[in-house]
Structures are given as C-alpha cells and as structure tokens.
C-alpha cells in the first residue's frame, strides 16, 4: 500500500500502516511508530517554531473507527491520541495551537498540545477536503457548500451554496 508523505522542516514523514520519520539528507529512518490501523492521507506537521511540535494524522482501525494520533515530531513518541469522536480520514489542519479535524457532521478544534476539545462547529454537509487556514479563518468545501469558519470560536462567517 502506498504511504502518504509530508516534507517537514527537519524530516520527511511517511504514514500508512506505520509512521516513520526519514532523514532528508541520508534517507535513514530516524524513528518508527506502529499503530493499529491505516492512515490514508498525508500527515500534518507543525513547523519548528510552533508550540505543539507534533505530527498529526487520522488512523482508521480494522473495526472502522477513526482516531487522531499526535506524535512528537523529533522522537515519534505518542503525545496524545483521541478516539472519542468518529473523525474524518482527511488530513488535519493546524496553526500550531490547535488542530482542526473533520468529524461526523462538522469540524472539531482540538488543543494541539493536549488533544482536549476546544470547540465543535456544525457544517452543512460532510467535509470534502482538508480545511485551509488563512488569517484566523478556516475555509472548507462541504457537500454543496463553501464555508468560512472563525478559528477562535468555530462560528460560521459565511456559507455559500454551490449549484
């Protein structure tokens, strides 16, 4: 199966049935993390200056549930995992302080360091692509709508139907 890659500041991260960090200069594997299940999207990596120095990705278990995994970027140690909601298999989005992930019928903001929930926003339709972050706003494409959500509160700034 094809692993999904993301190039970070310090390493290349590949996630599939396992997660690995690869030295960009030598190709050596720096760390490897095994998880039960599979990730189908590129992982999301915080930059070196952010507070939550993690690699984030969703893992779908054989039973079908999807959890979010946060690994410490430099060691591969588990920072936190959350399986209390049925998350989307799309890549998360992060601003370093929070992680934004799709959930059934909406969008969930989690604390990037602890994984604790911050807010949840209901969306008009399921998330079709990972959110885009820009100037304190998240832009999302859902089934039949384009939506702007404020990162601070999770409230909708605008909602435009697509014909």
């Amino acid at each position: 199966m094809t692993d999904q890659l993301t190039v970070g500041d310090e390493a290349v991260y590949a996630v599939g049935e396992v997660a690995i960090a690869i030295d960009p200069a030598t190709g050596d594997i720096r760390w490897k993390h095994e998880h039960a299940g599979h990730c189908w999207c590129p992982p999301t990596v915080t930059d070196r200056n952010s507070t939550g120095g993690n690699v984030y990705f969703p893992v779908k278990s054989e039973e079908g549930g999807v959890r979010i995994v946060a690994l410490e970027r430099t060691t591969g140690d588990v920072s936190w995992t959350d399986s209390t909601r049925d998350y989307s298999t799309l890549s998360p989005t992060t601003d370093g302080d929070r992680v934004y992930v799709g959930v059934d019928g909406g969008l969930q903001a989690l604390d990037a360091t602890t994984g604790n929930p911050v807010w949840q926003s209901d969306l008009p339709g399921g998330l079709l692509a990972p959110p885009t972050l820009h100037d304190g706003m998240l832009y999302l494409s859902t089934g039949g709508h384009v939506v702007a959500v404020k990162t601070a509160t999770g409230t909708l700034a605008w909602n435009t139907p697509i014909d």
Binding site: P42, S91, L128, A129, P130, T132, H134, S141
Partner: peptide, 9 residues
C-alpha cells in the same frame, strides 16, 4: 501554491 484538494486562498 498548494497541489492538494484543499481550497486555496
């Protein structure tokens, strides 16, 4: 640039 299915601003 993006290159994914994410919306682009």
């Amino acid at each position: 640039t993006d290159g994914t299915s994410r919306p682009i601003v």
